[in-house]
Every structure is written in structure tokens, then in C-alpha cells.
Design a protein around this nucleic acid. Sequence first.
DNA 1: ACGATCTGCGCT
DNA 2: AAAGCGCAGATCGT
Length: 849
Amino acid sequence: MPNVKPSTCSGCPLYDKGRGFVTADGTGTNGVLLLGEAPGATEASQGKPFVGDAGYQLNRTLERTRMKRDDFRIFNTVNCQPPNNWLEGAPWEEDATRHCDQYLYKVVAAMRPKVIVPLGNVALDACLGRKGIEALRGYVYEANVRGHTCYVVPTYHPAFILRGQDNLTGVQIYDLQRAIRMARDGYRQPPYSYVENPSGGDTGRFIDAARSAADRGDWLACDIETPCSGSTLEDDYGEIIDTEILRVSFSYAPHTAITIPWTNRNLAYIQQLLQLPFEYVVFWNADFDVPRLQSKGVTIGPKVLDAMWMWHHLQSDLPKHLGFVSTFFTELPEWKSLSGAFPEFYSCRDADATTQCTLGIKALLEREHRFTSFTRHCLELDPILKTMGRSGVAIDQTKRLAFQAELDNELKAIDQSIQKAVPDNLRPFKSKRSVPSEASPRLPFGDADTGVVWDISNEGEWGVRSPFLYTSPKQVIAYMRSQGHPVPRHHKTQKDTTAKLEIERLAKHYPKDPLYPLILKARKIGTMKSTFVDAYAPKPEGHVDPDGRVRVTLTFAPSTGRLAGQDPNPMNIPKRGDLAKPCRDMFVASPGCRLVELDYKAMQAVIVGYLARDEEFIKAAKLGVHAILASHVLARQRLMPAPINVDAEYAKLPIRAIKSQYPKLYDVCKHVVYLSSFGGTPYRMKVEYPDEFPSVKYAEELQQIYFTTLGRKVRQWQHDTLQLAHRQCYLDSPFGHRHYFWNVFAWDSKRRQLAWGPNAKDALAFLPQAIERCVLTSAIQRVVALDLAKVLRWPIHDSLLIEVSNGDDVIEAVKREMERPVPELDDLSFSVEVSVGTSWGSMTEWRSA
DNA sequence: ACGATCTGCGCT
DNA sequence: AAAGCGCAGATCGT
């Protein structure tokens, strides 16, 4: 039975609009009051808070705190359902909150909670009189809430987590556990001793103490403050111009720190501290601090450790700012809002928090035997990636300009055809006050080259029609509508889409329509030109340095453990299609040198076979897994006596025969193996490759054959991996990378059973990708150890681009290191294919002498 | 004008 | 309808 509003409830701004009325739920025996926002439809009709979707999410979180929901007291800030579930930022937010205060007052007075947990901004505002949940969450506040003094530990609203923020599930669990602990044990602000305005003697004493800390094996945390920490200016060569440093702070032990103003007199002290024999100097985001210190001539003696990366290695899916991370490893109260008022204290606290977080993160990594993997695969890799990025690859500007001109002409011609194919009324119209002087008496008139057309709008208004933009989804969709064609929808979001696949379908369905093929062609050429040709112009138009080389930034910041490249990204340069060769031809070897590309053969397939503990699959992957699946299919159809035996010496012969005799089946099998190992469905195969798969049923049959023959153990591995990811909420790679997955299985209400959830496929893709990266970077590190760093250019997931001057011995050495057995994978090895050329577009196979 | 967000597309 | 990555252009709000 829905609750009836109390008769005393009058004057509520939601009285006419609001529905239902919720009362507090749960016993509150653990001393924690969870305060939500306002009831939704389910809550309003049942009269209880958190019983709908957000309630389901909250219950799962509460379960993981190992407490019963009933042990908490659960209430809402506003007690009836606002229109459209809109409260935060609504015109009635303030009035409705104030009106419902009377009920919060009563609930607090009756329960006398030890801790209140505001869930989201509305509740936070009600408790602390301020908003900003993302900055304040996880911290402990002592506050007086409605006449009752207690702790307040803010956390996210469950509905926020449901809206695509499921990586924060674990954070919410942690926040609630902290609230429970505070209710049980109480909270005391930790004592601290910061040297905020040091005299020369103070600094000297700090340096002496730091020296003994270095001898004990402690680390030194360092943090600089600058006037504008956000913006950085760099000149053409990547050096920082503007670097004013205000102060530098240090800490070598929890709860202690010193902040040293940046003055000429203090410079020597700062330099002295950074030369003490510490094992590491620790920064939070060293890429900000270290270059600025160096640009001032300060040198850092010890190795640099970036604690932010250590955090990223520990848990890659969470925010990385120190204020967020410190809630997990310190008892410090929130301090990030104090930078303006108390700069000395703020800076000390930054250094102290860095020390405390570093110790906490290191302890966790060591407990899980992942600390050495961090030093090897992040710390030691970083300078290598920086060197590779700086080496650069030469761009042939003559070839680039020729290709650019060719694309430009083609694009102009296609655009003219596009303008002819589109009715005038579909062009963007912009009204103008006055008639242009060159207007002719006949309307509309315009310029066929530019597509600009003068016109009169419906209201008799003068205006100009600009060309139809094939790059604008909005205008393309308007065209589809105008032609009476069904507008395709994105399968997940259900939004209108103009994706390539959908336009290809429309082109097929309406073969007489002139526009669709033109759009496809123009997009292809347009992307090529803007992303891959214009971008390689000399600076400042493009990315190419005055010496003719393009330099990139390589990073391992992506949450998957893979590598990425930036400014520009060298990893997505076209490789297939007719434009790929002229595009790659722009990338050339320096005079007297050769570009060499070393590709791991079938790397992901071999890794999947390893993970599935399937020797046969590994052998099949190395021989050619697609052809071997094809042999299973042919054997079923009695076109072959038996599937290829991967142990047979002559196995390569029938593989070649299948490739040449059944090219279509070979392609089909390629798609089946590839998509199936990532959790792809037969439906997807049919949609993406309509020519190869005449029906979904055919794709289903082939996947069935795959999973019952060659891929039997792979199927089992997928099943086991998902179970493991679901049970522990994360997966670890053999190289120490961990990725969290919060929704591997989800409740399918249609089929009334657990089904693959939104993270299932991420979980299947994680290990092959994370392993692939570490196999390659380990090889790169060995190449560096051979003093061959200078030949390294770009890592591209499963291949490595290098540049060598003469002789084949360097190629041989790099190949050997890449093919070396990998101890982390039980000495699994991968074979490498080498191609060589003077340009990236004309590489030929290379064989060792 | 400028930044934030969305859409589409290249690669593995 | 495997995934995540970075980039360019369009759109929308300020």
C-alpha cells in the first residue's frame, strides 16, 4: 500500500506534482544512515526508499560490505517523487528540500546515527550545505546535521553508477565500508608536523633528517606548485617555455613535510634534497613536475617514480588525481579546496599525501606480487617509450604533397556531384538582412563550384544556402527522410545513425540513389586527407618537425594495459584499401637506411590457445588457424577425408591448398575464428559480412563447428574466464596488469536468467590484449639492453617498426629477441615475420641470410 | 569565439 | 552487433 502523505504535510512545492511518500527503511543498528535523493516511480508506489533499479544497485553494493541492508537506516532527502524524477538543478529543488527537512529532522533525532552517508549531491547539500560529490566523496567530515553531531561520509548516488559509471562500484563499496568503520571505531584527524615557513636552520635540519631517511631506504616525495598548474605552453621542439615555480615541497615519512619557497637562496637546498641518495624520488604525475624542475637547471639524482602510474597499475579504471586516491590510503581530511587560502599548508599536505599513498599502493602491489611487474612494465618502460617517440620517422613531403593534391582533386569532384544530387531545400539555410548586390533577378542563383545558393525562405526572407555537408550526420539523415528512406538506428543506443555499414546497406537497397555511394567515397577520401595526410605537413600546420621527421608521444596510460600514441597517433595509419599504399609511401627511411617492420604472426590466436591450455590450438594458430577450421568444415562435408593434423610434417601443404581452392570458405572461417574468440555472435557475422554469410543460420552452424572441434577448449576458457571475472570482479594478466569488471553477468529479465552483461566481452578481450602488449614491450626492453635503442621507432600492438642503416645483423638481433620464449607464459614463443623497404608503403619480405 | 560533447572511422 | 584507443569535423551551449 502506498503511503499517504501525512496530514501535516502542507505547502510542499511538489504537493500537486509529487507522487507517493516514502518513509525510512531498515533498523540502523550499525549506526549508519544512508541518505538518498528522492523516490523514483517504484519507490513512490511502494513507499520505501531504494527499491527500484537504483535500489538493486545499492543492495548489491551493500551485500559486498558484508552487512545486511536491514542493518542500515535508509531514507531520502525529499520524500515524494519529483516530476520526471528531476530534482537536482530543478527550480523546485531548494523548496522541496527545505520542505522535507522536517522528516529528515525526525529521522535523525530518532536514530541518532553515528555516520550519515549522503548519496549524491542533493543529500550532500542537505548534510554539509555544499555540493561537489566527486571532490568530497570518501572523506570524513564531522558535522552537525539537524541538531545532531555525527560523521558524514559522502559517496555517489547509485543511479549515477548505473548511468555508465560502473567502474565506481568498488569505490562505493569502499566508502560504505569506511562509514561502517567510522560508526564502529570513530575518527580522529591524524596529527601532522609540517614546516610551512622554514628558516635556513629548519631546512638544514630537514635535510639532515632526510639524509638518514635515505640511508634507511625511505623514498622522497616531491611536489611543485606553479601559478597556473593547468595550462602549459610548449614551443615547436617540445620544450616548456613558461615555468614559474612558486614552491617545492618534500616529504619522506607520513605526517611530515616541508615546503620551500622558490627563491635564489633556497635553490641550493632544493637541489641538495634532490641529490640525496634516496632509492626513488616520488612525484604524483612526474610528467608535470620533472620537466619544470629540469628547465630551471635542477637535477634529480635518484630514479624518478611516478606514484600516479603506480596507482594506475594497481587499478586502472579509476580517476587519478591525488585528492581522489588519498581517500583510500590516508585518514587525511579533504584539503584540495584550500590551495588559495593556505598555500603553504596545501603544498605540504600534497607531499604528505603523496608519501602516504605511495606507501599504501606499494604495500598492496607487493602483497599481490605485482610491484616488480610495475617497475619493469611501467617504470623502466617509460624512458624507452619517450626515446622511441623522440626518434621520429622521416616524411617525404614531395610524395605527401602529390598525394594531397590528388585527394583534393578527387574530393572536389565528388563534392560537386554531391551538391548536384542534393535538393536545394536540404542545404543549411542562413537568413541575411540585405540582398547581395550581385543578385540576379532570377532566383535562386548561385555558384556551382562552391554550392552556395542565394534563396528566399518561406517567409520571403533573403538568405544564403551553404553547401550540403556529407560529413554532417544531421544533414545526411535529413536527406534520408526527404527521400522516404528508413533512417537506420544504432543497435545499442537506438539513435539515428549514418554509419558506413548502414549507408552501404541503403546504397544496396536503393541502387538508383546517387548520393549514398558518393557519401561513402567522399568520407573515405576525406578521412584519409584530414587525419593522415594534412596531419603530416610541417609544423605548425601539421606535426612534422623542421628536420623532416614526425615525432609522437607513446603512452601506456590506457586502462587496458595496451599502448597508445598521440600527436599524431602512429598506430592507426591505413593499411588496407587502395589508398593505404600511397599513404604509407609518405613514411620513408632516412638516407642510407631501411625501414623494417617485424610482425608477430597470429599473435592473439596463439595467446588465446595458451590461455585455453590447448597445445593443438597453439600449433593450429602457428600454422594458420583459419585454414584448419576450414579443413574441419570440409571434412564434415566429406570434401576431405579428415581435418588437417597439426602434428603432421606435411600440414603446410593442405593449408596452402585450402587457401587457393576454397578462398571463400577460408575467409568465412577467418571471420568465425576471429569474432568468436572475442565473444562475437553469428548475427554480427552476417550483418558485417553479408557477402560471406548468406544467412545467420550459416554463421551459427560454422560457429558450432568451431566450438565443437578446434575451438572446444577456447570455448571452455571463455566460460571459465567469465566465471572468474564475475566471482572476483577483476582479471590479472601474467605480467601483473589487473582490470576490474563489475558487470560480467547481468540479469536478463526477458529470459529470466543470468546472461552476459555489459562487461563480458571486455573481460574476454582483456587478457589477449594485455599479454600482447607485454610480450612486445619485454622484447623491446631486451633490444634496449643490447644497446640498440637507437633503431626503435614505433610499437604497433603486434608489430614493431625499426630503422636500420646497414647490415642484417641488427634485424636478426631484434627478431631473435622478439622470438625468445616468454617465461611469464611458460616459455611460449611467437614467430616473427620481417619486411623491409625504403618506404613504409613498399615493404618486401625479408629472410635471414 | 571557445570548450564540451557527439559522431564517425582508422588501427590492433 | 568483440573491445579500446586517438583524431577530425559538426553541433550546441556559454
